[in-house]
Design a protein around this nucleic acid. Structure first.
Length: 651
DNA sequence: GTAGGGTTAG
């Protein structure tokens, strides 16, 4: 007897639907594991269109696809589907959802909302939330979360330890990191190579490369991975230890490891400095051999490497060769021009970037701002300020700080003050920008006032802040105040003075006429004095007409920078002012034999976006006559000099 | 068959 179709159909139908969902699930899973998250989402959509209900296994896979895409839009779409599903409260579904939002950088609102509503929190959920806070730099909240986790009696595992290590390195707190390290040993996860790799990276980020090395050397050879090598190489790169990075790379190849994209990327980072071009080129060629150089992030790093190695032409032609330029590609190239003070090329590329439909972000803007500060382009600087406002970038403190610095360097204290008082958050960088702005523009009293107010607000000065106040003292000739600050820096704040700080102190002594003391100070410095310090002493000798100490300083300068013209000129002036004409003649001979040429000094100013360059006694500007009239009315130029120019018929 | 994780340019 034939069964009627109507009784058998629903069962068959349900069975076939079940098997179709199962096969769709494996399709989704495979797509995700093979690195095609977008394909997984297409399958998911097809499922819905065919009336197939995703089950409890579908959602974790789909969530994983969303984490790989880091797209908030996709995540929210999936979230809506999940809400309608009977499996919404499943712990794995919830964990997947949480992780999805963490990866979209939606930690504080979306991810925490999911976490907060979870009934049963597994260790994975805690870890995901912890990582999320750490990656979003919400370190306080991460610490609170860890405490809560302990109170809840959840036992930390290896992933927790990794999250805590990243937390400690984010805070640059090596003490905290050591206690995380101890926790790792106590719970027995120190043999886990992933944990060790995190420690290597974390110690180097805290500035303790020797501890990174210790962890690296303790890893069992059987479990050592490429990531371990990469972490160690990155550590060296960040510490500026290019030679050590290269040595590690050599050992890595010797040990039979195949470098990957990340190896090349990090290695290039260690050669992004002058005099490292040869090694950079070597690694570039390795990258080509390994097939890494079609990757846009490697290309971007290469552009950066070439420009930092002062080979801007190679950087530009490499940039031009990139087919799929990203925002970072543009920014790196704009930054290359900006760092060498080439504002015009930087701006041109910035407009090209916008024309190409790429959105500049805060890093792009910060580069442009700093270029304006370097060349004193107040007009452009103001324009970028308003551009930053229109793009909502000025709310970021880093942008505001860059603007403060730019206004100070352009000598516009009013713009700087206005901005400073409008900021609702001020970091040590903001204060330091203000202080050094006043120091630079000769308003030493105001610089010191700001310094005191800053101290009262509870902020701790760093070595750059101290440099700024010391410069203020130099400009005002405040010898005692300078020494007091210098001692406060070394004794109270335990900051070791760098070359610049020592230069200030030597300058302070020299300008006061204490040339012998200045010389003694330089000779007893714990670090080798550079050309800047000797130049400061030489110019002090010029003020106080001391040819003997001047000769000594000049001698060092001729050794350090034989091609620089300034020391020869300074020394010749000192001889002339003390009537030692034989000395003047000997300097002339020395300049000739060393083939040193003195180019006249230049000064550039921008008005209405146009650059004007002037030299001493410049007669080429069309409005020169007017300029000299104004100068004479200010008492900066004598009437007689203007008449001389007139008679020469230059105007 | 299901989670959370290690290196990553400006």
């Amino acid at each position: 007897m034939r069964k009627s179709k109507s009784t058998v159909s629903p069962i068959l139908n349900r069975f076939s639907k079940f098997s179709r969902v199962t096969s769709m699930n494996s399709g989704v899973r495979d797509a995700v594991s093979q690195g095609y998250p977008d394909k997984a989402l297409i399958l998911f959509r097809q499922m819905k269109q065919n009336g197939l209900e995703p089950n409890k296994l579908t959602f974790p896979f789909i969530a994983k696809a969303c984490t790989k895409l880091s797209s908030l839009k996709c995540s929210q779409m999936v979230h809506t589907h999940m809400l309608k599903s009977p499996y919404y409260s499943d712990k794995y579904v919830q964990s997947g959802l949480l992780n999805m939002y963490v990866k979209c950088d939606e930690v504080e609102n979306f991810a925490y909302a999911v976490f907060d509503r979870m009934h049963a929190r597994e260790i994975a959920a805690w870890n995901a939330m912890l990582m999320g806070f750490v990656q979003a730099s919400c370190f306080d909240r991460a610490l609170c979360l860890f405490n809560e986790m302990m109170v809840d009696g959840v036992r930390p595992d290896s992933v927790t330890v990794m999250g805590l290590a990243q937390l400690a390195s984010g805070l640059k707190d090596v003490k905290l990191l050591t206690s995380v390290h101890c926790l790792g040993i106590r719970i027995g996860v120190e043999a886990d190579v992933s944990v060790a790799n995190t420690w290597i990276a974390a110690y180097s980020r805290c500035g303790d490369l020797s501890l990174s090395e210790m962890v690296f050397n303790e890893i069992d050879l059987d479990v050592l991975t490429v990531v371990s090598w990469n972490s160690m190489i990155t550590g060296c790169a960040n510490a500026g230890e290019g030679f050590m990075a290269m040595e590690l790379y050599h050992n890595m190849l010797y040990g039979g490891f195949r470098p990957d994209l990340s190896t090349i990327l990090n290695l290039l980072g260690s050669f992004a400095k002058p005099n490292a071009l040869l090694l950079g080129k070597l690694v570039h060629s390795h990258g080509v051999q390994l097939g890494c150089c079609s990757d846009v992030s490697v290309l971007n790093t290469l552009v950066c490497m070439y420009s930092r190695c002062a080979d801007i032409d190679s950087a530009r032609s490499l940039f031009d060769s990139i087919v799929d330029r990203t925002r970072v590609s543009w920014t790196v190239m704009i930054g290359s021009y900006a760092e060498k003070g080439d504002l015009e090329d930087a701006m041109a590329l910035f407009h090209a970037m916008e024309a190409a439909g790429e959105q500049p972000d805060l890093v792009t803007v910060i580069y442009l701002i700093s270029a304006c500060g370097q060349v004193g382009a107040l007009d452009y600087g103001r324009w970028i300020d308003s551009y930053a406002i229109s793009r909502g970038l000025k709310s970021d403190i880093r942008v505001s700080n860059a603007l403060l610095d730019m206004y100070s360097k352009c000598g516009s204290a009013r713009d700087a003050e206005e901005l400073f008082s409008s900021m609702n958050e001020r970091t040590i960088v903001s204060w330091t920008a203000m202080i050094s702005g006043y120091a630079l523009n000769g308003q030493s009293g105001k610089a010191l006032d700001y310094f005191n107010v800053m101290l009262m607000s509870g902020l701790e000065p760093n070595h750059i802040t101290f440099l700024a106040v010391l410069q203020a003292c130099v400009h005002a000739g405040l010898m005692e105040k300078g020494w007091e600050l210098f001692h406060r820096m070394t004794e109270l704040y335990k900051l070791s003075p760098g070359l610049d700080h020592h230069a200030c102190m030597a300058d302070l002594l020299g300008r006061q006429g204490k040339l012998k003391e200045a010389l003694e100070y330089i000779q007893c410095m714990p670090i080798k004095p550079d050309a800047g310090i000797w130049a400061a002493l030489l110019s002090a000798c010029k003020i106080h007409r001391n040819a003997d100490i001047g000769e000594y300083a000049a001698h060092h300068l001729f050794e350090l920078e034989p091609q620089a013209a300034a020391p020869y000129v300074e020394m010749a002036n000192i001889y002339a002012s003390t009537g030692r004409w034989d000395g003047v003649a000997s300097i002339r001979t020395k300049m000739k034999s060393n083939q040193v040429r003195k180019y006249p000094g230049e000064s550039t100013i921008q008005v209405d976006g146009k650059s004007y360059t002037f030299r001493v006694d410049d007669k080429f500007h069309p409005k020169g006559c007017l300029i000299y009239e104004v100068l004479s009315s200010l008492g900066l130029y004598s009437k007689k000099q203007i008449d001389t120019f007139r008679s020469e018929e230059f105007f």
